[in-house]
Design a protein around this nucleic acid. Structure first.
Lengths: 126, 126
DNA sequence: TTGAATTTTGCAACTGAGTTGCATAAAATG
DNA sequence: CATTTTATGCAACTCAGTTGCAAAATTCAA
């Protein structure tokens, strides 16, 4: 893939301003382009390391701009809102212990928190 | 859903002995039953809290028996093997800080580590 | 123990994410 | 400006997961 094509720029621009990760269908609604093209551009940007890919256990794959830096998410069980969060201590101690105890070399991790956001804590709903 | 039906028992038995989480297609290969039935049994067991559902960012939804207890995973980037791991400190301090700082009440989390297992650390492959 | 009510299972058909092959459009290069 | 390369789009496909409906199995009451 070359650089700086219209579709690619639109995807990047969208993900850079978005505070939470987006799925391809969500990206598609904003960046109106052929879905094959979108999947291919995303794949190439992931390989270059400028996009991160992950999901929250719901089978929905989401993408986020790497320019936002490494962080985790707070996902509300009630309203579904997703906030970013940066931890004080980012598991380096645990990762070292894992290597010492299990001989598994950790290169990255995925950590997401589920619960209830400010607004939904007062609600009775589960 | 009632309890203790043949399909349900087979799924549970399989997941209880399996050390890593399985996807529905994987479950299907062992528990030979209609896929609709499997999806429905899994859904009901998730609601009862005897099964956990999550994935590793690859869009593949996997299930694990809750009887194995709360733990995390070490996923090898090279061979794909999945090991379970229990942390010394299970993020309670971080979760408390999140509530204090952000007013988000954490009820659960999902933490997975990616890297290279014992066998794959010697390999040159990425 | 028989028969109605309920639950589980299976089938067929569908939805929707993601992929692949192929043809065309747009850039880059000489 | 013609050739090569890369990006885009379309059509058709695969596969996970869902839904409606009918049949089988189970429960339970009389």
């Amino acid at each position: 893939m070359k650089r700086s094509t219209p579709v690619r720029n639109k995807i990047l621009k969208l993900l850079r301003v978005c505070k939470y990760p987006l799925s391809v269908p969500e990206i598609n609604k904003k960046v109106k382009a052929n879905k094959t093209t979108i999947y291919r551009q995303i794949e190439s940007m992931i390989k270059e390391g400028i996009l991160f890919k992950f999901d929250f256990g719901d089978g929905v794959v989401r993408y986020e701009s790497a320019s936002n830096g490494h962080h985790h998410h707070l996902i509300c069980n009630n309203c579904g809102e997703i906030e970013g969060v940066v931890l004080d201590d980012d598991l380096t101690r645990e990762e070292k212990l894992i290597f010492e105890k299990r001989n598994f070399l950790v290169t990255s991790h995925m950590l997401e928190f589920f619960g209830f956001c400010k607004n939904c804590q007062s609600d009775t709903k589960s």
